[in-house]
Amino acid sequence: MSVPFYDSGVASGLLSGILFGYVLEAAGFGSARKLTGQFSLKDWSVFKVMFTAVLVAAVGLYLLRLGGMIAGNSVYIPTLYLWAMAAGGLLIGAGFAMGGYCPGTSLVGIVSGRVDAVVFVVGMIVGTMAFAGVYEPIQGFYFAAKGPDAQRLPDLLGLPEWLILAVLIVVAIAGFVLGSRLERARGGPFTAEDVNGEDTSKAKNQNTTFNTEAGIVP
């Protein structure tokens, strides 16, 4: 038995997607306010969840390779096109801050009942069509400053992979500590009640006692 299976069938897609969607929703990423809270520093969930996920998967792939379970070049590694990817990252960051979602989280937003996420997806489709419209004139930029094929940080920096993983883990821990501190200072992070419960004025009125169940102790 050799992994990866390189299975691109229906069941493979559905399984990957169901796990992905379920976890994104559980993280609170169907909520535009929780997502954008990252950039007002009130809610560090985007940083915390993404960084943890990247590191869990990166360490997992490293250990599987070390243990001989998977080959060195067995998973897809994107190739750098410096300017287009930097510009694309900037545009997605800007669009996320304004629109409240990225492509994956907008899908979770829709199935969480967010009408604004539907509008966001319509915007994405229009933006994609606009890109296709100007693709030919901007091809020079699109392919500019190509990096080596499938280049990874260990290749770029000339450092062993375990060292890079260790540094990233330290950065993640520092981000968790700093983020949690800033969240507390700003009255965050957003809870499920914060982002799902505001028209439940009925529920609010029932809370005639203090918010004991939420544990919001100053």
Binding site: P78, M85, A87, G100, Y101, G123, T128
Partner: peptide
């Protein structure tokens, strides 16, 4: 804002050849 943000993300995703999930 959702529409404009979505459009920026649509363009950005094509420029970058991926998004927050893929890249």
């Amino acid at each position: 804002f959702a529409f404009i943000g979505g459009a920026l993300v649509g363009i950005g995703g094509r420029l970058a050849r991926g998004c927050t999930s893929g890249l």
